[in-house]
Simulated assay, not measured.
Amino acid sequence: MAIPNYQNIMLPLLKYAVDGREHSMREAIGALADQFNLSEDERKELLPSGQQPLFDNRVGWARTYLKKAGLLAAPKRGYFEITEQGINVTRQPLREIDVRFLNQFPDFINFKSSKKPDDNVITEFDEISEKTPQESIELGYQKIRQELEIDLINRVKNISPEFFERLVIDLLIKMGYGGSRRDAGKAIGKSGDGGIDGIIKEDKLGLDVVYIQAKRWNTNVIGRPEIQKFVGALYGQRAKKGVFITTSSFSQEAKNYLSDIDIKVVLIDGQELAQLMIDNNVGISTVSIYEIKNIDSDYFIDS
């Protein structure tokens, strides 16, 4: 079955704690995953950021909302237990618990009213959304990033070949290649050896080198012949490593060809180029920074 949203998890989580014992979040997540018959892939599915399993995050937010309503308590870090008020709720013939249901509890109303007046839209969103607040933030971030990738590669496709050469240098240096910028500037674009645009140090000491091919194309798909030409040039130099960078894309035949050769060649298409530029802050600037914070439970341990 599909991974349940955090509101659908609230009632099963509350009933799980009805025995009155302290329960760890880890054991609760496992028990609820079994109850919802989640597959291994569903249990391992991650948030867009890749930093936490999606189901774990939703169980965490279900617990948070139940705590805000006074139905669960947190006796110590990573554990929870049901309250008397929570036990009374489980005695009702309920089919589900959602944010609207929690609005009857004063503690939850106080939690919501602690938000600024301008946050009414957020409150209404909480009541109808199937996603946790953290999921909504991460999905919003991913959408902004995807739009930035599209805008970025369109801009790169329209710069001059000389500017593209400098962009490649800046990116490789930010990624830790090329030694100094002066060394990289000398290497890229100076080879002139059929199929090779430049040679750059793999590390700052120059213990190994990487051969570069860069194609600033608007629409052309890079096919197998272009990759074969590059690989042939690498063999001619007795090179072991190469990187082919393009603003376009690579055909499946071109990708398949590389699995049959000994030389290590990395293909970077327009989409990945844009992603690398964003990750390494090349050609972009930061507009806003948002920090997601949590209580440091260790700080409040009275020794």
Rank of each mutant, 00 (worst) to 15 (best):
L258C: 01
A254F: 04
N103G: 10
L47W: 08
I222V: 14
L13R: 00
I222F: 08
I245R: 03
Q146S: 15
P161Y: 05
S180Q: 07
I292W: 07
V209E: 07
M175H: 09
K174R: 12
V265Y: 04
G185R: 15
E165S: 11
S297N: 11
G86W: 07
K201H: 05
N8D: 14
G86T: 09
N103F: 06
R58N: 03
V121F: 04
T90G: 14
K215G: 04
I278C: 13
W61D: 00
E291K: 06
K116T: 15
I122G: 02
Q35H: 11
R224Y: 00
E124P: 09
G60R: 11
A233I: 05
F36Y: 07
D260W: 08
D279W: 01
R238I: 06
P12S: 03
F244D: 03
E147Q: 07
D260T: 14
R166T: 08
D296K: 11
F125N: 08
D302H: 03
N88E: 15
I295N: 05
K157G: 02
P75Q: 08
G30A: 09
L11R: 10
I200E: 00
K190I: 09
D193C: 09
R91S: 09
K241R: 07
V59P: 01
Y299R: 10
S297E: 14
G178L: 07
E135H: 01
A73K: 14
S251V: 13
Y65M: 15
R181W: 13
S297T: 14
I292D: 04
F108T: 12
Q92Y: 03
N5T: 13
K240G: 06
I289S: 10
A214F: 06
T123C: 08
I263M: 00
E22T: 13
A254S: 10
I173P: 05
E40C: 03
Q51I: 10
I284H: 05
S259Q: 14
Q51M: 12
L94S: 11
K116N: 05
R100S: 13
A214G: 03
T132N: 08
D34T: 03
G86D: 13
D19V: 02
I3F: 04
I87P: 02
G30M: 10
V18R: 15
